[in-house]
């Protein structure tokens, strides 16, 4: 014991051991350095996600599909509108008589990878355009939901009390409305309005697209708003928020800098779940003839058109069906992976 070295002078002495107050050696300092570098929540979650092999396969698949959908139309030799009566209903990799004659002369003809449709249009490029529409709808809807949901949910959660009460009643009411029916109703109305007015933008996008985005902006954000509000309510009680408020930070700054970063996991999970449902809704509307306007193809309208020659030309159904299945499956599995990675408590 070091105490024994110091003789006791009087009972009121502090009896401090001077050895304890020597500067630390380099070796001792090194021990204080953390053994493991600190890992932020985001990096931790992303590491968990990258270990999920199925989710990574889905990420790669979605990226490949997106690249194909956005790059291939730039240099593809056929356009999605070009009709050709001589090449109706060609099977995949089949050539029309005219094209066969060209090949015989030695001219290279790009094959119809997925054949052609009833009007002689190259089917591959139409499926690619349809896939592009699906991806765009999915991503833009998620963005709309994220923006509105975060703003609404964080305001409601942060201010609490009567503000929260009123804002959440509104959410409850919107939540109870049957959304798909309202999408259909709006697309019917917008389609009629487009046909009797000449708004170029709406006509170009198609009634279904406009109404989907409108309905996502009006109705679908409530799920996100609820989740964000719940998260904010619990974050509000944390000491660091109190500290920020004590140092005079404004409400907007506290929400932006302290609360939303802590809601990231909830936001990512809800947004990922939103994408497949938006893609479903768009394809459903297009199948009913309420989606994008002709001649722009959508996976839903391609499948609807394929019904007329279904028994003889099944590939017209199989290609768009496979495409939508793959996209939605990848987003679903990625969503599950994100949920597991960002919310370890929810893991089943």
């Amino acid at each position: 014991m070091p105490n024994e070295k110091i003789p006791i002078k009087n009972p009121f002495s502090l009896q401090v051991d001077p050895d304890l107050f020597k500067p630390a050696t380099e070796e001792e300092k090194a021990q204080q350095v953390q053994m493991r570098e600190s890992v932020s929540f985001m990096r931790d979650a992303l590491r968990r996600l990258s270990r999920n092999r199925l989710a990574m396969v889905c990420v790669v698949l979605i990226l490949v599909v997106a690249l194909v959908a956005f790059l291939v139309p730039q240099f593809y030799p056929y356009s999605y509108t070009k009709q050709d009566v001589t090449s109706k209903y060609l099977h995949p990799f089949e050539y029309s008589a005219k094209e066969q004659a060209k090949i015989d002369k030695g001219v290279a003809v790009f094959p119809h990878i997925m054949g052609t449709d009833a009007l002689g249009r190259d089917y591959a490029i139409r499926v690619i355009y349809g896939t592009r529409i699906s991806l765009l709808v999915g991503i833009f809807s998620a963005l709309i939901v994220i923006v509105i949901g975060i703003i609404y949910g964080s305001i409601s959660g942060y201010f609490g009390g009567r503000v929260d009460n009123v804002m959440m009643r509104v959410v409850d009411i919107i939540y109870a409305l049957p959304d798909v029916l309202i999408v259909i109703l709006l697309s019917v109305a917008i389609k009629e309005m487009v046909s009797s007015s000449n708004n170029v933008l709406i006509a170009k996008l198609g009634a279904g697209m406009v109404s989907i985005f409108m309905v996502f902006g009006l109705l679908y954000w409530v799920g996100m708003a609820r989740q964000v509000r719940g998260q904010i309510l619990s974050i509000k009680e944390q000491e660091y928020v109190l500290a920020a408020r004590a140092t005079g930070a404004s409400a907007a700054r506290i929400i932006r800098k302290h609360m939303i970063p802590n809601c990231v996991s909830v936001i990512i999970i809800v947004a990922a779940m939103q994408i497949p449902s938006a893609i479903f809704t768009e394809s459903f509307l297009s199948f009913l003839g309420l989606g994008v306007s002709i001649p722009m193809p959508s996976l839903g309208s391609l499948a609807a058109d394929a019904r007329s020659g279904l028994n003889s030309y099944p590939y017209l159904l199989i290609f768009p069906a496979m495409s939508i299945f793959l996209i939605v499956l990848s987003f679903n599995l990625l969503g599950n992976g994100l949920r597991d990675a960002f919310d370890p408590k929810l893991r089943s």
Binding site: P276, F280, S283, F284, F287, G300, A303, A304, A306, R307, L310, N311, P314, L317, A321, I324, F325, V328, L329, N332, L333
Partner: peptide, 22 residues
């Protein structure tokens, strides 16, 4: 089940029509 929840109703119905019926 993962595959089934990734298929819209029109895909399921037309595929059934094609394979099971035709």
């Amino acid at each position: 089940t993962t595959a089934l929840v990734s298929m819209p109703s029109f895909v399921v119905a037309t595929l059934l029509l094609l394979f099971v019926s035709f």
